[in-house]
Design a protein around this nucleic acid. Structure first.
Lengths: 260, 260
DNA sequence: CGCCATTAATGGTCTAACTCATTTATCTGT
DNA sequence: ACAGATAAATGAGTTAGACCATTAATGGCG
């Protein structure tokens, strides 16, 4: 008697799948565990009960529980090891997790490495400005200590390369915006996957490049010390642009991201 | 005879799990299918063979295949429907996919809504500047047409709200940097989940706010028309800062992201 | 004391079957 | 003919039990 136009309704539902979405048991289990992680009830390294215990607790069969494991594993929230003492352990989500899905989307949309670099050069300068405005004495201590370390490793190309990466990270994390820091972290993750061969390759002018980088870093830290937001932003923008030019001349603007 | 210090090696392996990581069958299957999607061999809407066919093709059992489905489903690459004509269908990855993992990470790190907003106000202004520098006539046509549309819906608060969102999107997508566009899309996705109640609530000064927004939009489009990169950037920065102040005064700086 | 084999714990995979949802085709009455 | 109800086919959701592979701890042997 009821449901007059069943046929028509279902036909439209095919397009917009959301309204009738029936959650699967595995999703519900994953939701419960994910919530505990996000809310901090479960922390990095904590073990989940064994599969047999969880089957009992959630009252589901093993395949279902294992589907839930695959979901959480895909989200990089757990890590499963087998053998005695194995099982599922909580993993703190890292930047790479977000970088993964982000990178996949970039690849599907045919983004170029140049765009990723440009994104960084958009984001980091304002961050440098903000750090200059807000810096604490502790920030300054960390920055100057790092500059000193860079100066000492100037001729050890590998160590200096790592040091510059750490400097970027230091800059971003001390600026005090978690969201921006995470974005830069993602971009850095994607970027660094493409330049492994670039930094590994010995360059005749590597020392000159390192000196240039150190000079720019020093200039930025000077501006931050002076609480000169505009100056810090400008200094870092120049630096990023120089970096962009160097890397683009090496790898080519049109290099398409190829990650997976 | 070989393998002298088996015990010690395994103890260290517990920390860095990567070297001995054994891929599971479900992961391998998911990798194969994911690759086909990323490389464009499988496109949005394409159906995967039925479970029985795939079991045969990959020579695995049903639970294993279904774990692979859960992995791809978690990555929002497929969507599974049951019943006749159902099965797994390819889904084009959307911004929300990246926004999900990004948002989860933000929540775990106790990011605030203010930081998300600030991130946007960091990113969008340089983008506006770039659009001003590169704009085509087609870009201008789209922008001016949109401004006109906004002017007409100025008093329909709901429509105008949507229109402003579209304006941001238009600005970002026309600036021609896929990576930045995707980042703004993520931030927008996260942001909009928090302001549903904000925009839904009727404000006594809503009309004035709309007029302010339209005035700022118009000013930006003027600067873009004039190919004035610096002016466009400054105009949009001012606008974003105004928005920031308004929303923060309403929701409070310390609102912590709460999404899941 | 240290090495190595044994054992127990635990996840990885498979087979087989049943249940439930959905679509498509068929039937039936008017 | 035609509309609506009914049946059948399709295909995912879930369960059960078994066996295999890997790992950590244990204990015995040289």
């Amino acid at each position: 008697m009821s449901a007059p136009s069943t046929r028509a309704r279902q036909a439209t539902d095919r397009a917009d799948q959301l309204p009738v979405r029936v959650p699967k048991a595995a999703e519900l289990i994953a939701n419960v565990i994910r919530r505990k992680i996000v809310l901090g009830e479960l922390q990095e390294g904590d073990p989940l009960p064994a599969e047999s215990k969880l089957m009992e607790q959630f009252n589901v069969s093993r395949p279902t529980l294992r589907e839930a494991f695959r979901i959480l594993e895909t989200e990089a929230l757990i890590q499963v090891r087998r053998g005695a003492g194995g099982g599922a352990r909580i993993q703190a989500p890292r930047d790479e997790m977000a970088a993964r899905s982000f990178g996949m989307l970039l690849q599907i949309r045919n983004a170029t490495l140049g765009e990723v670099l440009q994104a960084r050069s958009f984001i980091e300068p304002p961050l440098a400005g903000q750090l200059a405005a807000r810096r604490s004495e502790e920030d300054m201590a960390a920055l100057t200590a790092h500059i000193e370390m860079e100066r000492e490793t100037l001729e050890d190309f590998e160590k200096f390369g790592q040091a510059t990466a750490v400097f970027h990270q230091l800059l971003v994390s001390r600026a005090g915006n978690v969201a921006v820091a995470l974005m830069v972290g993602m971009l850095d993750d994607i970027f660094s996957r493409h330049v492994t061969q670039f930094v590994a390759r010995a360059r005749s002018d590597q020392l000159a490049l390192n000196q240039l980088a150190l000079r720019n870093h020093t200039r930025l830290v000077d501006r931050i010390a002076a609480r000169d937001a505009a100056g810090a932003e400008a200094a870092w923008r120049d630096h990023m642009n120089e970096l962009y030019d160097i890397i683009m001349s090496e790898l080519g603007e049109t290099t398409v991201l190829d990650l997976y």
